[in-house]
């Protein structure tokens, strides 16, 4: 079975028979590509069956996280969503569907534009708050124009995004984090609470659960 998480920017593909895992840009997916089942913003174009992103995230959390109570946060290039479980029961979820969006994408664009290597940049205490990635980029450019080093300005925006995401997820003591930003070491180090990394294929574990329970019958 071929599973697909087709986000706004990146596609994560998992072949459950061979366990092959591929990450590529959604724009590089062949037009004829059809996964058996999947999730994500662009899924309707590329899969026979689709699963609601939050349902996939909740399924994945229940399967992958052994603790009874946890917060699982997924930060994509366009949006962020989280689920909270207590004593293995679903308690809460939220999804910043559009507003506050494009943070992940903005961080990637900014790094490329300013030529910042996030793996070599130290987390900052000061932070830039911004409603969305585009406004945040404006603040970074203003800071650089005012004399702040580009990597420091970018790191301050990242710190701001981390604080914003922490508040969005209701300030838990510990966050399980998934999504493209798990590969950004500066982002992970800038999180204001204990942060446990799950890989970018996490949502697909939830999709697999859905497929096993609903499509194989």
């Amino acid at each position: 079975m071929v599973l697909l998480d087709a986000g706004t920017t990146y596609a994560k593909i998992l072949n459950t028979d061979t366990n092959d895992r591929v990450v590529k840009r959604v724009s590089d997916l062949e037009k004829t590509f059809k996964a058996d089942v999947g999730t994500g913003h662009n899924i309707n174009r590329f899969a026979k069956h689709s699963v609601n992103e939050i349902i996939a995230l909740a399924n994945a959390g229940k399967k992958l996280i052994k603790e009874d109570s946890f917060t699982l946060l997924d930060i994509g290039s366009r949006d962020a969503k989280y689920v909270v479980f207590e004593n293995r029961n679903f308690i809460h979820s939220d999804w910043n569907t559009e507003c506050g969006a494009f943070t992940g994408q903005a961080i990637e664009i900014l790094g490329n534009y300013l030529n910042v290597d996030y793996s070599k940049t130290l987390p900052q205490k000061e932070f830039i708050t911004a409603t969305c990635g585009l406004l945040g980029m404006g603040h970074v450019f203003d800071s650089v124009a005012a004399g702040v080093e580009p990597e420091i300005a970018a790191a301050r925006l990242i710190k701001g995004v981390c604080i914003s995401m922490y508040r969005f997820a209701r300030k838990p003591k510990k966050i399980y984090l998934t999504g493209g930003l798990v590969n950004n070491q500066l982002f992970v180090k800038s999180m204001p609470c204990e942060t446990v990394i799950l890989d970018r294929f996490t949502l697909l574990e939830g999709v697999k659960e859905y497929a096993l329970n609903n499509l194989s019958k």
Binding site: N52, E53, I54, I55, A58, D79, F90, S93, W95
Partner: peptide
């Protein structure tokens, strides 16, 4: 209604 709003709403109702 946007697709995202529907997904957020239906997930909330399903998970509860």
């Amino acid at each position: 209604l946007t697709r995202s709003t529907v997904a957020k709403l239906t997930a909330f109702l399903q998970l509860n």
